[in-house]
Amino acid sequence: MPFTIATWNINSVRLREGLVARLMQEEAPDIICLQECKSPVEKIPLETFRDLGYAYIAARGQKGYNGVAIFSKFPLKEIGAHDFVDLGHARHIAAQLENGVTIHNFYVPAGGDVPDREMNEKFGQKLDYVAAMRDWASAEKPEKSILVGDLNIAPREDDVWSHKQLLKIVSHTPIEVEGLGEAQNAGKWVDITRQDIPEGLLYSWWSYRSPNWDAADKGRRLDHIWATPDIANAGHGSRVLRSARGWEKPSDHAPVFATFDL
Protein backbone atom coordinates (compact mmCIF):
# COMPACT_ATOMS: atom_id res chain seq x y z
CA MET A 1 0.00 0.00 0.00
CA PRO A 2 2.13 2.91 -1.19
CA PHE A 3 1.14 6.22 0.37
CA THR A 4 2.29 9.82 0.43
CA ILE A 5 2.42 11.66 3.72
CA ALA A 6 2.61 15.42 4.27
CA THR A 7 3.44 17.32 7.44
CA TRP A 8 2.51 20.97 7.86
CA ASN A 9 2.43 23.45 10.72
CA ILE A 10 -0.76 25.20 9.63
CA ASN A 11 -0.80 27.94 12.33
CA SER A 12 -4.59 27.69 12.89
CA VAL A 13 -6.58 25.08 11.01
CA ARG A 14 -9.78 27.13 11.24
CA LEU A 15 -8.18 30.33 9.97
CA ARG A 16 -6.49 28.42 7.15
CA GLU A 17 -9.19 25.87 6.36
CA GLY A 18 -9.03 26.97 2.71
CA LEU A 19 -5.30 26.37 2.50
CA VAL A 20 -5.64 22.84 3.87
CA ALA A 21 -8.43 22.21 1.37
CA ARG A 22 -6.21 23.55 -1.42
CA LEU A 23 -3.43 21.18 -0.42
CA MET A 24 -5.88 18.30 -0.38
CA GLN A 25 -7.19 19.18 -3.84
CA GLU A 26 -3.97 20.14 -5.60
CA GLU A 27 -1.43 17.78 -4.02
CA ALA A 28 -3.74 15.04 -2.66
CA PRO A 29 -1.36 13.31 -0.25
CA ASP A 30 -2.90 10.22 1.30
CA ILE A 31 -2.12 11.37 4.85
CA ILE A 32 -1.79 14.92 6.14
CA CYS A 33 -0.34 15.64 9.58
CA LEU A 34 -1.02 19.14 10.89
CA GLN A 35 0.53 20.94 13.82
CA GLU A 36 -0.41 24.12 15.69
CA CYS A 37 -4.08 23.59 14.85
CA LYS A 38 -5.09 26.02 17.63
CA SER A 39 -8.54 24.47 17.94
CA PRO A 40 -10.51 22.02 20.03
CA VAL A 41 -11.10 18.87 17.97
CA GLU A 42 -14.85 19.48 17.79
CA LYS A 43 -14.29 22.85 16.11
CA ILE A 44 -11.89 21.60 13.41
CA PRO A 45 -13.73 21.80 10.03
CA LEU A 46 -13.91 18.02 9.71
CA GLU A 47 -16.77 17.95 7.21
CA THR A 48 -14.82 20.06 4.73
CA PHE A 49 -11.94 17.62 4.86
CA ARG A 50 -14.17 14.53 4.77
CA ASP A 51 -15.83 15.86 1.64
CA LEU A 52 -12.38 16.01 0.03
CA GLY A 53 -11.73 12.35 0.78
CA TYR A 54 -10.08 12.47 4.20
CA ALA A 55 -12.57 10.37 6.12
CA TYR A 56 -10.29 9.27 8.97
CA ILE A 57 -8.89 11.47 11.71
CA ALA A 58 -6.87 11.23 14.90
CA ALA A 59 -6.37 14.45 16.81
CA ARG A 60 -5.63 16.23 20.04
CA GLY A 61 -6.95 19.77 20.29
CA GLN A 62 -6.50 22.79 22.49
CA LYS A 63 -8.25 26.15 22.39
CA GLY A 64 -6.03 28.81 20.83
CA TYR A 65 -2.74 26.92 21.16
CA ASN A 66 -0.85 23.85 19.99
CA GLY A 67 -2.94 20.96 18.65
CA VAL A 68 -2.04 18.08 16.31
CA ALA A 69 -4.15 16.18 13.82
CA ILE A 70 -3.76 13.33 11.32
CA PHE A 71 -6.13 13.23 8.33
CA SER A 72 -6.10 10.11 6.19
CA LYS A 73 -7.75 8.68 3.11
CA PHE A 74 -6.95 5.24 4.50
CA PRO A 75 -8.47 3.72 7.64
CA LEU A 76 -6.44 4.35 10.77
CA LYS A 77 -7.00 3.95 14.46
CA GLU A 78 -5.81 6.31 17.15
CA ILE A 79 -3.45 4.52 19.52
CA GLY A 80 -2.69 7.27 22.00
CA ALA A 81 -0.97 10.51 22.79
CA HIS A 82 1.85 11.52 25.11
CA ASP A 83 1.95 14.65 27.23
CA PHE A 84 5.72 14.77 27.47
CA VAL A 85 7.06 16.54 30.59
CA ASP A 86 3.44 17.09 31.73
CA LEU A 87 2.99 20.49 30.11
CA GLY A 88 -0.71 19.92 29.55
CA HIS A 89 -0.19 20.70 25.87
CA ALA A 90 -1.68 18.93 22.83
CA ARG A 91 1.62 18.20 21.10
CA HIS A 92 1.54 14.53 20.13
CA ILE A 93 -0.87 12.07 18.56
CA ALA A 94 -0.23 8.54 17.28
CA ALA A 95 -2.30 6.43 14.90
CA GLN A 96 -1.86 3.13 13.11
CA LEU A 97 -2.71 2.22 9.54
CA GLU A 98 -4.18 -1.16 8.61
CA ASN A 99 -0.78 -2.27 7.26
CA GLY A 100 0.65 -1.91 10.76
CA VAL A 101 2.56 1.33 10.18
CA THR A 102 2.39 3.69 13.15
CA ILE A 103 2.45 7.45 12.56
CA HIS A 104 3.61 9.82 15.30
CA ASN A 105 2.75 13.48 14.78
CA PHE A 106 4.73 15.92 16.96
CA TYR A 107 4.72 19.63 17.66
CA VAL A 108 7.82 20.36 19.73
CA PRO A 109 7.78 23.59 21.79
CA ALA A 110 9.32 26.55 19.97
CA GLY A 111 11.37 27.55 23.00
CA GLY A 112 10.97 31.32 23.09
CA ASP A 113 13.64 33.80 22.03
CA VAL A 114 16.43 33.45 24.61
CA PRO A 115 18.50 30.23 24.48
CA ASP A 116 19.03 30.02 28.24
CA ARG A 117 16.86 27.87 30.50
CA GLU A 118 17.69 30.04 33.53
CA MET A 119 16.42 33.18 31.81
CA ASN A 120 13.71 31.61 29.68
CA GLU A 121 11.40 28.92 31.03
CA LYS A 122 10.15 28.06 27.54
CA PHE A 123 13.65 27.13 26.39
CA GLY A 124 14.01 24.78 29.34
CA GLN A 125 10.66 23.19 28.50
CA LYS A 126 11.81 22.63 24.92
CA LEU A 127 15.04 20.94 26.00
CA ASP A 128 13.15 18.79 28.49
CA TYR A 129 10.56 17.85 25.87
CA VAL A 130 13.19 16.69 23.39
CA ALA A 131 14.93 14.74 26.17
CA ALA A 132 11.61 13.07 26.99
CA MET A 133 11.23 12.12 23.31
CA ARG A 134 14.69 10.53 23.55
CA ASP A 135 13.78 8.57 26.67
CA TRP A 136 10.47 7.45 25.17
CA ALA A 137 12.15 6.19 21.98
CA SER A 138 14.84 4.45 24.00
CA ALA A 139 12.22 2.65 26.09
CA GLU A 140 9.70 1.89 23.34
CA LYS A 141 12.20 0.88 20.62
CA PRO A 142 9.73 1.78 17.85
CA GLU A 143 9.38 -0.39 14.77
CA LYS A 144 7.53 0.12 11.49
CA SER A 145 6.96 3.72 12.47
CA ILE A 146 7.04 7.17 10.90
CA LEU A 147 7.63 10.30 12.97
CA VAL A 148 6.66 13.63 11.47
CA GLY A 149 6.07 17.14 12.62
CA ASP A 150 7.30 20.57 13.44
CA LEU A 151 10.26 19.65 15.64
CA ASN A 152 11.29 23.32 15.83
CA ILE A 153 14.98 22.48 15.41
CA ALA A 154 17.07 22.79 12.25
CA PRO A 155 19.86 20.29 12.94
CA ARG A 156 22.27 20.59 10.01
CA GLU A 157 24.39 23.51 8.85
CA ASP A 158 22.61 23.43 5.50
CA ASP A 159 19.21 23.42 7.23
CA VAL A 160 19.58 27.15 7.94
CA TRP A 161 20.43 30.15 5.81
CA SER A 162 23.52 30.98 7.90
CA HIS A 163 25.00 28.46 10.31
CA LYS A 164 27.35 30.99 11.95
CA GLN A 165 24.70 33.67 12.41
CA LEU A 166 22.15 31.26 13.88
CA LEU A 167 24.37 29.44 16.38
CA LYS A 168 22.93 31.58 19.19
CA ILE A 169 19.40 31.69 17.79
CA VAL A 170 16.75 29.35 19.21
CA SER A 171 16.17 26.42 16.81
CA HIS A 172 19.82 26.01 15.77
CA THR A 173 21.81 26.29 19.00
CA PRO A 174 24.29 23.48 19.66
CA ILE A 175 22.41 22.26 22.74
CA GLU A 176 19.17 21.91 20.77
CA VAL A 177 20.88 20.19 17.86
CA GLU A 178 22.60 17.80 20.26
CA GLY A 179 19.32 17.03 22.02
CA LEU A 180 17.49 16.32 18.79
CA GLY A 181 20.36 14.11 17.64
CA GLU A 182 20.08 12.10 20.83
CA ALA A 183 16.33 11.70 20.34
CA GLN A 184 16.89 10.59 16.76
CA ASN A 185 19.60 8.13 17.71
CA ALA A 186 17.53 6.68 20.57
CA GLY A 187 14.86 5.56 18.12
CA LYS A 188 17.34 4.86 15.34
CA TRP A 189 15.19 7.23 13.29
CA VAL A 190 16.26 7.86 9.70
CA ASP A 191 15.80 11.41 8.40
CA ILE A 192 13.91 10.54 5.21
CA THR A 193 14.09 14.06 3.78
CA ARG A 194 17.87 14.10 3.97
CA GLN A 195 18.09 10.48 2.86
CA ASP A 196 16.45 11.66 -0.37
CA ILE A 197 18.05 15.11 -0.54
CA PRO A 198 21.45 14.57 1.10
CA GLU A 199 23.11 17.82 0.07
CA GLY A 200 22.24 21.48 -0.25
CA LEU A 201 20.32 24.20 1.54
CA LEU A 202 16.78 23.11 2.38
CA TYR A 203 14.15 25.02 4.34
CA SER A 204 10.53 24.56 5.42
CA TRP A 205 10.02 27.78 7.42
CA TRP A 206 10.43 31.46 6.63
CA SER A 207 9.69 34.12 9.25
CA TYR A 208 6.69 36.44 9.00
CA ARG A 209 9.13 39.18 10.04
CA SER A 210 10.70 39.15 6.60
CA PRO A 211 8.42 41.14 4.26
CA ASN A 212 10.11 39.65 1.18
CA TRP A 213 10.65 36.13 2.47
CA ASP A 214 11.13 34.57 -0.97
CA ALA A 215 13.87 36.90 -2.17
CA ALA A 216 15.62 37.09 1.20
CA ASP A 217 15.35 33.30 1.58
CA LYS A 218 16.41 33.29 5.23
CA GLY A 219 14.81 29.96 5.99
CA ARG A 220 15.21 27.02 8.34
CA ARG A 221 14.27 23.33 8.05
CA LEU A 222 12.13 22.88 11.15
CA ASP A 223 9.69 20.29 9.78
CA HIS A 224 10.77 16.69 9.52
CA ILE A 225 9.82 13.21 8.35
CA TRP A 226 11.67 10.34 10.03
CA ALA A 227 11.20 6.57 9.82
CA THR A 228 12.47 3.53 11.67
CA PRO A 229 15.22 1.56 9.90
CA ASP A 230 12.93 -1.36 9.03
CA ILE A 231 10.91 0.83 6.65
CA ALA A 232 13.31 3.68 5.87
CA ASN A 233 14.38 2.16 2.55
CA ALA A 234 10.76 2.31 1.42
CA GLY A 235 10.77 6.09 1.72
CA HIS A 236 11.36 8.29 -1.33
CA GLY A 237 10.05 11.31 -3.24
CA SER A 238 10.80 13.83 -0.51
CA ARG A 239 10.05 17.48 -1.26
CA VAL A 240 9.08 20.78 0.31
CA LEU A 241 6.13 22.62 -1.24
CA ARG A 242 7.80 26.01 -1.01
CA SER A 243 5.10 27.68 -3.09
CA ALA A 244 2.58 27.19 -0.26
CA ARG A 245 4.50 29.76 1.80
CA GLY A 246 3.40 32.28 -0.83
CA TRP A 247 -0.32 31.43 -0.76
CA GLU A 248 -2.73 34.09 0.46
CA LYS A 249 -2.55 34.57 4.24
CA PRO A 250 -0.13 31.65 4.56
CA SER A 251 1.36 29.73 7.40
CA ASP A 252 5.02 30.58 7.93
CA HIS A 253 5.75 26.88 7.32
CA ALA A 254 5.58 24.96 4.06
CA PRO A 255 4.36 21.35 3.76
CA VAL A 256 6.97 18.59 3.61
CA PHE A 257 6.22 15.36 1.72
CA ALA A 258 7.52 11.81 1.43
CA THR A 259 6.19 8.66 -0.19
CA PHE A 260 6.49 5.17 1.31
CA ASP A 261 6.10 1.99 -0.72
CA LEU A 262 4.71 -0.27 1.97
Rank of each mutant, 00 (worst) to 15 (best):
K63C: 05
R194W: 07
I169L: 09
T7D: 10
A132K: 11
P29W: 01
V101Y: 04
V114N: 12
I225L: 12
R242T: 11
R156Q: 15
Y54L: 08
S39G: 03
E140N: 15
N99G: 06
L202G: 14
P211Q: 14
Q96I: 04
Y208R: 10
F106P: 02
K38Y: 10
K218V: 01
G67V: 04
E98S: 15
R22L: 00
E248D: 14
R245T: 08
E26C: 01
A154Y: 08
M119W: 01
R221P: 00
D86V: 05
E121D: 15
E98P: 07
A216P: 06
D252K: 00
G246Q: 11
K63Y: 00
S12V: 01
D51T: 13
A28E: 15
G61W: 00
M119G: 11
I146F: 03
V20T: 02
A234R: 13
N66F: 05
H224N: 03
G237Y: 08
H224K: 10
S210C: 15
A131W: 11
T4R: 12
A139Q: 12
A6T: 14
P198M: 10
I231V: 07
L151D: 11
G187M: 08
G179P: 00
P211M: 12
Y107A: 06
I5K: 02
A132L: 06
G67S: 00
D86S: 12
K164D: 15
A132I: 03
G219Y: 00
